[in-house]
């Protein structure tokens, strides 16, 4: 039942889509039918999967990097009122800048290769991670903080034995937001300047009016996002079993 319902929902939408293309006689150039999309994928399966792997790798490495940078950043922000005052507004401002606006500059700086895409991913991912980690650490129940104080615990102990652990469920909320953004970030980077990846495939197919190829690439993007999201949910369930109650 748990897997049957989502599959049923998906099939229903695909059925409606198919029906619409037939009933309204829509040009495949505008909206291809599901069959056109599958056919287009089967024409170049190896190529498309290769491009999908590139985008996946960009998204995952950017996401990983965001954790590596974002969590310590949150620790610093929670740890020092001064640092929080200094850099928190800056972080908010950075997040407020539309990433699409930064993308061309990032490509100018880092070139057409993977590094500019990874940086784009970091730019979109890092904010939710920092915010969720920082607010999770700050919301540690006072009775637990008092327990640590009564044991004369050091700041290091308080952070790593208490606050960070307590923040974990909330960190995962941020991570789940970020992981879906990660794929978007990678595609934005590829749109602006790339020679590989699903975003690149979409740009090229748009140029040659190959709509069904663009749809196939989008379907692969969707599959990647869903897989990453549920993969992360699985990790969460293994790592923070106490948070489920």
């Amino acid at each position: 039942m748990r897997t049957a319902l989502p599959v049923l929902g998906l099939l229903a939408i695909i059925g409606l889509w198919w029906l619409a293309t037939i009933v309204f006689g829509i040009e495949p150039l505008l909206v291809p039918s599901p069959a056109d999309v599958v056919a287009s994928f089967l024409e170049l399966p190896g190529y498309l999967l290769e491009q999908a792997l590139i985008t996946l790798w960009e998204a995952v490495s950017g996401f990983g990097l965001s954790i590596v940078i974002g969590v310590p950043l949150a620790l610093l922000i929670v740890g020092s009122r001064v640092l929080e005052r200094m850099f928190y507004p800056l972080l908010v401002a950075l997040n407020a800048v539309p990433k699409v606006a930064i993308a061309p500059i990032v490509v100018v700086w880092f070139g057409f290769g993977i590094s500019s895409k990874v940086l784009m991913v970091v730019l979109v991912c890092i904010f939710p991670i920092v915010i969720s980690t920082a607010s999770g650490m700050k919301s540690t129940p006072s009775e637990l903080v008092e327990l640590f104080r009564s044991l004369d615990a050091t700041r290091t102990h308080e952070f790593f034995k208490l606050r960070l652990w307590h923040a974990l469920p909330q960190i995962f909320v941020g991570l789940k937001v970020s992981i879906t953004l990660a794929v978007i970030g990678a595609v934005i980077g590829e749109f602006v300047g790339a020679d590989a990846g699903l975003g690149y495939v979409i740009t090229v197919s748009g140029g040659s009016a190959d709509t069904s190829l663009a749809f196939a690439a989008m379907a692969l993007l969707a599959i990647i996002s869903v897989a990453l999201f549920y993969g992360l949910t699985w990790v969460e369930r293994k790592l923070v079993p106490w948070a489920e109650v």
Partner: peptide, 19 residues
């Protein structure tokens, strides 16, 4: 002057770490 290691405190709530 500060919490001592030979003094233990027990609170109204169990204050256990859930993880």
């Amino acid at each position: 002057t500060r919490p001592r290691r030979d003094v233990s405190v027990m609170f109204q709530r169990p204050a256990l770490l859930p993880w």
